Computed example of a mutant assay.
Amino acid sequence: MRIAIQTIAYLWASPYTIAGIAIGLILGGRFQRVDGVIEIHGPRIAWLLRHMIVPAQALTFGHVVFGQNQSALDCTRLHERVHVRQYERWGPLFVPMYLLFSMILFLRGRDGYRENPFEIEAYDAEERV
């Protein structure tokens, strides 16, 4: 039963996972698999993460985590694994819901990143360790 549930979770998140793998290949990233998650880093990925609207050390797409470098992947692993689980729960709805929460918060004059419920869950997991 556990294998069936995990398979469904991978399939539900697969549109973003496939996109993440494609982006990693296009950008010439270095791939590694850690605990069922593909981690990718490299100079072009680092550049993109540094130049996003909210610069990031790492970013999750389904079962793919992009990091500026290996150290960033190591430091953010727990936080990003929470996002992986969120993709497993929300599937294709994750990114639209994340952006919707951010936009609503921003329009209310609040922090669309730190006050986003998805980020709150990830940061709470870090604090518990």
Rank of each mutant, 00 (worst) to 15 (best):
G28D: 01
G62E: 01
F31E: 06
D124Y: 10
P92F: 11
V54A: 13
D111N: 15
A9E: 13
T76E: 12
D124S: 14
R81M: 07
F118W: 10
L27Y: 08
H63L: 09
I26W: 07
F101Y: 14
I21F: 00
I104G: 05
I104D: 02
Q6G: 02
L105K: 14
H41M: 02
Y98W: 13
L48P: 00
Q6S: 12
L99V: 12
I26K: 12
T17R: 02
I53P: 06
R50Q: 07
H63E: 12
L27R: 11
N69L: 09
R50Y: 11
T60Y: 04
L99R: 14
W90H: 13
L73I: 11
G29V: 02
L105Q: 07
A122N: 04
R44A: 05
Y113L: 02
W47G: 08
L107I: 07
A19D: 01
M103S: 14
A9K: 15
F31S: 08
P15F: 06
G112Q: 08
H83F: 01
E127S: 07
P43V: 05
G67D: 00
R50C: 01
V84F: 00
V37A: 00
H63Y: 15
R77N: 05
R30C: 08
A4R: 12
F101E: 14
F61S: 08
R110Y: 08
L49D: 02
Y16H: 01
E88H: 08
Q86R: 11
Y123I: 13
I18F: 10
Y98A: 02
F94P: 02
P55V: 03
P117C: 06
M97Q: 09
Y10P: 01
Y113D: 05
L59C: 08
L105G: 05
P117N: 04
P96G: 01
G42F: 00
L48W: 10
G36C: 05
E126G: 02
A19W: 00
R114A: 14
R108T: 11
E80T: 07
R114V: 02
A125V: 15
V84R: 09
P43K: 15
A56V: 04
I18E: 06
P15K: 12
R114S: 06
R110P: 09
A4Y: 13
D124T: 11
G62N: 03
V34W: 06
I53D: 11
E80L: 08
I18P: 02
E39G: 03
A4E: 09
F101A: 10
L27K: 12
I23H: 01
F101C: 13
G62Y: 02
F66R: 00
L11S: 10
H51V: 01
W12E: 04
I26D: 00
Y16N: 03
I3T: 15
W12P: 04
A56P: 03
I104K: 12
D124V: 09
H51K: 10
Y123L: 12
L107D: 07
L11N: 03
G36A: 05
W47T: 09
A46P: 03
M1I: 11
D74W: 08
F61W: 15
F94C: 02
G67Y: 04
